[in-house]
Design a protein around this nucleic acid. Sequence first.
DNA 1: CACACGGATGATAACGTTTTCATGGGAGGC
DNA 2: GCCTCCCATGAAAACGTTATCATCCGTGTG
Lengths: 340, 340
Amino acid sequence: MPRFVSRTPAITDVAKLAGVSVPTVSRVLTGSVPVSTERRERVLRAIQELGYRPNGAARALIKGHQSVIAVLAGATTRYGYALTIQGIEEAARLAGYIVMITVIEAEDPDTVTKTIDLALANPVAGVIVLKFDPAGIATVRAMPSGVPVVAVAGSRGSGVPHVVLDDTTAAMTATDYLLQLGHRTVHHIAVPLAGRRSGRSAGWRKALERAGAEIPPLMEAGWDPHRAYEIGLTLADRDDVTAVLCGNDELAIGLLRALHEKGRRVPDEISVVGFDGHPLGALWSPALTTVQQDFVDVGRRAFREVVAMIGNEQPPQNSSGTPHLVIRESSGPPPEAKRR
Amino acid sequence: MPRFVSRTPAITDVAKLAGVSVPTVSRVLTGSVPVSTERRERVLRAIQELGYRPNGAARALIKGHQSVIAVLAGATTRYGYALTIQGIEEAARLAGYIVMITVIEAEDPDTVTKTIDLALANPVAGVIVLKFDPAGIATVRAMPSGVPVVAVAGSRGSGVPHVVLDDTTAAMTATDYLLQLGHRTVHHIAVPLAGRRSGRSAGWRKALERAGAEIPPLMEAGWDPHRAYEIGLTLADRDDVTAVLCGNDELAIGLLRALHEKGRRVPDEISVVGFDGHPLGALWSPALTTVQQDFVDVGRRAFREVVAMIGNEQPPQNSSGTPHLVIRESSGPPPEAKRR
DNA sequence: CACACGGATGATAACGTTTTCATGGGAGGC
DNA sequence: GCCTCCCATGAAAACGTTATCATCCGTGTG
C-alpha cells in the first residue's frame, strides 16, 4: 500500500534528479518545444521514479484559463436531472473540460449563497444551473455577475442565457391530445413549480383554457411517486376523472399503481399520461404514454452555450428542444365515448 | 448581458482601488486576521465595484491541499451509480469538498488512460472509482500511484482500498430465499460482470452449489432492460423456469413485462427477484421483491475513506454494507409446492 | 517617564508551473 | 576558415494568492 509523503514531488525535484533545468522538464511535459532524445529519456525516467504528476493548480494559474464547468442542481438522481448532467459531462469531456457537481439542498438564501460560494471557491470557467425547481430558480437569481452562467430550464427566462426544453408546449401537446380523444377535461398531478407562468403546469392550464374546458384544482405531489400513489387512491373513487396528466413519469407510475390496486382499468376507464420518457415507463403494464424530452441534448446545448460565453463568442443558435408525444397503452378515449 | 473582459480583476486591482496593500485585501477575504472597520469597508466596496472573485487556482497553489474529489464511473444515470454519486457529493459538500465527475466510456486501455489523464490534469485531492463494471476495473488497474484512490465495489479487491457493498452475500441471500421457498433451482439474468469470483453472479452460483442445485447457464443482458425483456419472452415458454434472480431491478422490470405479455402469472407460476431496491420496483404490479443496497451510504463511506487517505490518517472502520432482502409481491413458492 | 506589549499594516517570500528572453554551440554556406 | 543562422538549453520573470516577518503606532504598566 503506497504511503503519501508529506511533500509531493515537484518539477524541481524531477529536474534535479534528471540533471536538467526546470524548463526542460516542462518542455518534455508539454511537448511544446523539442528536447534532445537523451535528455527527454532522463526526464521521463525521473518522472517515473518519483511518481511525479504536474500540479494542476500551478498550471491553471499560469494558463489563465480554467477548464472546469460547475453544475449546480437541486438533485442529481432524478431522471431528467441525471440525463441532463450526462449530456453536459459527455460534451465537456469531449472538449477537454471537466464537470464539477454541486447539489443545492434548499432554496433559502443562506443555503444557496453558501453552496454557490463553495462551488465558486474553485477555479471555474463557467457555470450551468439546472433550473428545474425552486432551488434552481433561487440559484440563478443569486449567481454573482462576472461568471459565465447558463440556465437549463423548462422554459425561457431572463437574467442569464437560458437553454430550454419547451415544457409549456409539451404539456399543451399532451393535454390537447387527451382533449381530442374526447375527455371533457384533464386532471393534473404536478411536480414542484419552476415558474408560475411557464412550465408543465402552465402548459396544461393554457391548453384547458384555450379549449374552454373546466380547470380542475392542481394536485401537487412534489417529487415523490408515493405521494402520487396516495393521490391516486382518492382519485380512483371519483367518476369524473377520466384523464390525468402527471408532472413526470415517476408520478405517473405511482398513480398507475394506485389505480391498479383499486381495480380501475387503464386506459379504458382512466387515461394516464406521464412526462419525460423514462425508459421504465415503456415496460409498465400498461405501457406509459409520455412526453419524451431530450435531456441529454439540452445538456450538450448548455455546455456549448457556456463555452461560447467563456470565449466571448457568438452563442450557437439556441433552438429549444422539440419534445414529442409517445403514445403507448395508458391513454385512450374516455368511457362515455366508447359507449356510444 | 454582462461582458467578460479580457483580464479579470485580480487582488492587486482591488488593493489599488481601495488604497490598501494586497495582503490586507487577502485578510479581508479570508478573515484570518482582523482588519480595521474602515479599511474593510473600502476593500469590500472595491470588490463589489470590480466584481472581483478570488482566483481559485492561485489559492489552491499556495494552500497546497486541494479540495476536489474526482469520481470516475462507467455511467452516472443508472440507479446504483447515481445514488452512490449522490452519497459522495453529499458527504463531500458537508466537508467543504467539491466533486468532479468523469465518465469512463470504454474499458480499452487507451480510453481509460486518456480519461484518467483528463481528470488528473486538474488539481485533485483524491479519487473515487466506481468499480461496478469492466470499465471501472480497468480504471482502478490503470490508476497511477501517488494519488489517493478508493474503489467502490460490489466485493473486496486488491491494489487500492475498497469500500464495498457485499454483492456476493446479497445474491446468496436472495438465492437461498428462493430455494427455501421450494424452487428446484434459480435462473439468473446478469448485469455485466465486475469480477469472476465475486459479485452478484458469483453469489448466485455459490448458493446453488452449496444447496446442490442445478446451475443453469447464466444469461447476460448487459444493462439494457429491453434485453431482459427479450430474454423474458423466451423464458416464458419454458416450464422448468420457476424462479429468476435478476442482476438489477431494471432488468427485473423488463422480465416482468415479458412474462405479463405472455400471460405468465407472477409469482404463482414464476418468481422474480431484483437487485438494488429501485423505488419504482415497489410500485410495480406485482411489486418487486428485491435486495436493497444502501448506495448512498457506500458513497459516504468512500468519501470518508479517501479523506482519511489524503490526511494519512487511520481509515475509518470499513464495515461493508448490509444488504437486506425486501420481500414484496413478485416472489413465492413454485407451482408444484402449491399443488401439494 | 521609560518600557514592554499587542494589534494593525505593509513589504517580501513562497507556492509550482509555463513563458519569455538570452546564451551557447554546432551546422552549413561562402 | 569565418560568418551566419538555427536549435537546444538555462536563467529569470510571471501568474494571483497567502504566509511570514518586520515595522509602526498606541496603550497600559512599573
